[in-house]
Design a binder for these strands. Structure first.
Lengths: 358, 358
DNA sequence: GTGAAAGCGCTAACAT
DNA sequence: ATGTTAGCGCTTTCAC
């Protein structure tokens, strides 16, 4: 087996440095008791041999791999790409490795879990994708914490961080109402995804509170993708049996962008004059000149921090946090796809333009 | 150390199944000599204990981790996100794990290499980012193959797969010339990146062959990003000392998209009537209705296959392939940002519209 | 086909 | 502060 490899081990280094092998181990373990002088001798020998400690071997004894698994669903939604990036950057800063698994839309992450169980990962982050409660307990039994990012699994004791999606949906509803909208359409994502369902629920609830009739709120499936949203918008707006809604809520920015393009460049409508539009997420793509999308910002960096803190990777002995549900407020960002009503012109956050998340 | 974990080992399974521990190992090793009956007994016991073989331990003996490292530069360029996705999907199909490292723009990947060396990865794929030849040999010495994706390192013996960027640049030049352009601008990426430099070179060369004067080809730095390209375009076109070029080549699609938006929505120009534009990559985003970008398609799936074949992960004993440079032809995709000249109306690939890579 | 035993390269008591 | 020793959970000869 194994390609002829000639890798120096701690024994080789020990021999060259004239110390014991444990001294080598200590030299590479911050905080272990070793004389600075010996340390230098070891480091010097290690340098000569281009020695790199074998993490695999160390994982075997410590039972900590320093690897965090990241399970990703939809990479077609830029929001999750930015999420991946944020996690990756943060974890790298901490000197941890990131193992990724991509899961097809609609598929569950169970198989991915089985794989990462084999690698003794220190924690798992799950975005998109479903997860059976059976897998959750399998991880927990083995001491592997899981944190759900922007979703939760009813009946599971897995912890999670999410944007307060329902409240965010309400914010959009309020913005539309303030701008005078009376009839509404929603472009939804996967109905099984709590993210989509919660945004829809908050949105509808708020509308009903204002006396909007259910029949004035229509809902179409947009598959969480640009293309599906584009097509659904065309179908919806060309349906002769329907009158044109005043406002369209894309459950996420990428769908709102698809809708916007369909409205303007296929249907020849003006936004916001003929029809207002809003999204959710505040992806950088939605801030571009042609879109200037009014949306709800998910504080992605904050969410990432929270998620990692729930994992508490530095305190492996602390029991796993179960059943935590940490909702984080989103913020309405006014741009150009809803006319800003006078009442909102003051005092802050207006035309939240292009500045990025603080 | 180690959170109180109670994970079944092969010994537990062996005890329950009433066989030796080696039998358990064999039961999980395809192709090893074990009676079907024993295998079943073992599998049954394993199921009862929810046993998952410990890959860390097995890596230690076999010296193969079944992990492939993927080093990513710019995640703001969707092309690399699609690349990541393609690699991840393919590798997962093969039952391998993907360890990712993100490297900041302009930074080199040396530190990432040091980390992945510690994990005994079976292979390394490098996209974007620079890599010192020292690190290359460090990997090679240890029997870890590296493949460069869409870049090469002069003076290094690392193998790579890339789109034939120079030829692609020529294709764009030809398209512009055929459409009657006489003066040109280029939006370039990082000048140190071979990808950008090669496209520029091919483009310019072809133009010069047709008698275009050097002074009719201007070049501005677009930083490989949408925003920088947008701004650079505005600056360029509002420069009173310059006359407007007939054609603008964005060295990659995301920059061409930024340029397109600047031209249309900031400068009020029509594309292709006032100015033609082309990109490079053929990312799905450039196929969207508002863009319909004429571009050169990089056959990403084919490139991924080639890259993996150079790694020859299944034949670890074969010596590492060095110095391979596998250029793969791109294909010109006509859409709407260059008027299609009559000579090109036939026979194929025209208005290559929205179909994706075969 | 199966079991016993010797590592893989490291960490972590335990002595000194 | 340093060396000695016993594993971590597996794979792989080597006998039988």
């Amino acid at each position: 087996m194994a390609r002829p490899t000639n890798r120096a081990t701690s024994f080789d280094v020990a021999a060259l440095a004239g110390v014991s092998q444990s001294a080598v181990s200590r030299a590479f373990t911050p905080g272990s008791s070793i004389a600075e002088e010996t340390r230098q001798k070891v480091l010097e020998a290690a340098r000569k041999l281009a020695y790199v400690p074998n993490s695999i071997a160390s994982s075997l004894t410590t039972k900590r791999s320093n690897i965090v698994a990241l399970i990703l669903g939809d990479m077609n939604n830029p929001f999750y790409v930015h999420t991946l990036h944020a996690f990756s950057r943060r974890l790298q800063e901490q000197g941890r490795q990131v193992l990724i698994f991509t899961v097809d839309r609609g598929a569950d992450a169970d198989e991915a879990i089985l794989h990462l169980l084999a690698y003794q990962v220190d924690g798992v982050i799950l975005t998109a994708a479903q997860l059976s409660t059976r897998m959750t307990s399998l991880c927990h039994e083995r001491g592997i914490p899981i944190v759900l990012f922007n979703r939760y699994i009813p009946g599971s004791d897995a912890s999670g961080v999410r944007c307060d999606n329902a409240a965010g949906g309400r914010l959009i509803a309020e913005a539309f109402l303030a701008a005078g909208a009376k009839s509404f359409a929603m472009l939804t994502g996967d109905p099984k995804a709590t993210t989509s369902a919660d945004r829809v629920r908050g949105f509808v609830e708020r509308l009903l509170e204002d006396g909007i009739k259910r029949s004035d709120i229509i809902s179409v499936e947009g598959n969480s993708s640009y293309d599906a949203a584009f097509n659904a918008t065309v179908t919806l707006l060309t349906d002769k049996n329907r009158s044109r809604p005043d406002a369209l809520f894309g459950i996420n920015d990428i769908m709102a962008m698809g809708a916007l393009d369909a409205l303007r460049y296929r249907l020849g409508l003006r936004v916001p004059e003929d029809l207002m539009v809003a999204g959710f997420d505040d992806i950088p793509e939605g801030r571009r000149t042609p879109y200037q999308l009014t949306t709800v910002r998910q504080p992605i960096n904050q969410m990432v921090e929270e998620a990692l803190s729930i994992l508490h990777l530095d305190e492996p002995n602390r029991p796993i946090e179960r059943g935590i549900d940490r909702p984080i407020s989103g913020k309405l960002i006014w741009r150009n796809t809803i006319p800003v009503p006078p009442a909102y012109r003051w005092p802050d956050g207006l035309k939240g333009g292009s500045e990025s998340e603080p």
